[in-house]
Design a protein around this nucleic acid. Sequence first.
RNA 1: UACCCGGUGGUGUAAUGGUAACACUAGGGAUUUUGAUUCCCUCAUUCCAGGUUCGAGUCCUGGCCGGGUAGCCA
Length: 573
Amino acid sequence: MATTTSAPRTDESRGDKPSSRNFIQQIIDADRAAGKNGGRVHTRFPPEPNGYLHIGHAKSICLNFGLAREYGGKFNLRFDDTNPTKEEQEYVDSIIDDVRWLGGDWEDRLFYASDYFQQLYDWAVQLIKEGKAYVCDLTADEVRAHRGTLSEPGKNSPYRNRSVEENLDLFQRMEKGEFPDGTRTLRAKIDMASPNINMRDPVMYRIKHASHHRSGDRWCIYPSYDYTHGQSDSIEGITHSICTLEFENHRPLYDWFCEALRIHHPQQIEFARLNLTYTVMSKRKLLQLVQEKHVAGWDDPRMLTIRGLRRRGYTPEAIRAFCERIGVAKFNSTVEMAWLEDAIREDLNERAPRVMAVLRPLKVVITNYPEGQVEQLDAANHPQRPEMGSRTVPFTRDLYIEADDFMEDAPKKFFRLAPGREVRLRYAYFITCCEVVKDKSGNITELRCTYDPATRGGNAPDGRKVKGTIHWVAAPHAIAAELRLYDHLFKTEYPDDAPPGKTFLDNINSDSLEIVRNAKLEPSLAVATSGQHFQFERLGYFFTDPDDSKPAKPVFNRTATLRDTWAKEAAKE
RNA sequence: UACCCGGUGGUGUAAUGGUAACACUAGGGAUUUUGAUUCCCUCAUUCCAGGUUCGAGUCCUGGCCGGGUAGCCA
């Protein structure tokens, strides 16, 4: 996605089966067949710079960029920055960075609605001259009172029939800053009785004596979304203006402005925004999580912001594959979080080198192994991909294994280590547990085992089998590390469904972060640099934390666990 | 209560009047030096009722249910 900008649309389909078309592709197919826009396809992603991007935005970015690429068209990034009091440069910067990271390529077409303020102003003057817009002196409250309700028509503003001259004069004086905030607006003259409330003389301009992150103090009147969005699309030659369902009722207004202005008329198409289980998606709630410190920040790996996912160890490829799979429709649906997890596992399974790390170390002494001896054993970096090569892991008399891989009183189905049982240490030897050492309070402190020298590498020449293979790390060579284990931020599938008197915050999962401070890593990880993905065998996929990991004190974030059918089995009991 | 949009397995999408398909989840099984990966199997007559048609998930009518909309937010 990142490098190709004009591949033919068939590059999507795997195999020979033609991929099915979503409703937007069908619309575009029909438009092209009819020769609309000369067959051109030009989309855009139009964020307001008032927050960080999340997985829901990724769906929109992938959709818009994917369509442009599929049809050999163009994709713009445009900031919808018409409200100076809510928007900040910080958000602009982060959004640019996130879209690029995801693979969206706008080439040289980075735009801002604020770039069009002068054009929008000139068009407003034109509409006034044509009797299609007027300056209204009603206050916000009065406007609301005149608007009517969902079931009752509105009433005309007393200022609706001002002369063109008076409207022009007033609008020019609004622009010059003669009036205080909120005292006047410019409104489109449409129909106060329309069943669509958006058509009841919507506000085109409001007075805001505020500086804008880009235009500074040049303007004190700012255009509204409805008066800006369609025209911005038009100016940029957008053919298909794709937005979410809540703008459906705005489409007649979008169309009205394009018609009234007699300008290029892009087609607005609405789709359902993404919802995911075990999370919340609204900007307001994400902001609240950050501000009230329920999470560490916008890039907290539990947040489904692009920055959070990135820090967690998600890859752009996985996010794109996810967006591809969930599809596009007009039905309000909620995708299971397992889909996202599946997407990252699928990607990382392919690319992540395998290493051994022990989360909760349990000391093992191989009693028949010579003290002080060190063997370098060969370990594959990826069992299915020999081209990824192998590395060497040291084996010594003192080892660490996973505490979970030993049970003193093990059930039959437990394939790991237990008193008298034999298991394979991955890439090393078969060992048998002979003795369990405990402290005064009965806690297991150490296991004493014997190894079979004939099983070097992990195979028994006599053909005997073991049921379990466990990971391990040589104690003298182990690297201490901090591991951050993440789980869903919310404990319920639909956090927004809170009982009366409760809010989504009451559904926060208090166990969503577990910090393991004394994990043991195999020595090959000493040279791990930030930005690297690993599979810690039998545990999950881990990613070096880009901020906190230091060579002296490595920190890894768990991106995803491995599927664990044993955990399911054990949970049945 | 007005207007707009929508309803296909547990979940998300497909089927464009002609045998309801794909993926995820779940449950079985095979392979396995990761209880991973991989592979195989199982899980719906399409919200309801009428109608049109040789034939309806698809078209028509009427219900039912869900979502959106009353910012000088986007």
